[in-house]
């Protein structure tokens, strides 16, 4: 059982950390890497004044946090700093699914009532 737990705990730690980072970076004003598609460049700020996408920046941040957490868990287990228990896996599962539900709920709540701001129309633009 120790071998199975040692295989499952690090990725689950990574998943929980990824979800926590996604939640916190949305709930708190966080400086992120923004892609400005019309200007063909990236910028690092909380919210640019022009049309931009924070999706890439948030994804890189959360993947980084998740990878760090998974690596830290794997290294700790390898160094035998603690013995794994099945109850830890259950707790991690509950935390991971709780974070998924909480973060999904937050997004559904924010986006259900959002009023998006359209980009200025270029000269001669005709909507199809």
């Amino acid at each position: 059982m120790q071998k199975s737990l040692a295989r499952a705990v690090p990725p689950l730690c990574g998943a929980a950390a990824y979800l926590a980072a996604w939640f916190l970076s949305t709930a708190l004003p966080t400086r992120l890497l923004w892609h400005l598609p019309v200007e063909h460049r990236f910028t690092f700020e909380v919210h640019p004044l022009t049309l931009g996408a924070d999706f890439y920046g948030r994804l890189v941040l959360c993947l980084g946090v998740g990878a760090l957490a998974a690596t830290a868990a794997a290294v700790s287990i390898k160094l035998r700093k603690f013995e794994l228990r099945a109850s830890w896996l259950r707790a991690l599962l509950i935390w991971t699914f709780g974070l998924l539900l909480f973060t999904s709920g937050m997004y559904l709540n924010i986006l259900a009532s959002r009023r998006p701001i359209a980009a200025p129309l270029p000269p001669g633009y005709v909507a199809r």
Partner: peptide
């Protein structure tokens, strides 16, 4: 909603 919910699904697919 779709974009963010599927980004939240990414760690589950990787796990």
């Amino acid at each position: 909603m779709k974009e963010n919910l599927l980004a939240l699904a990414l760690p589950f697919a990787l796990c």
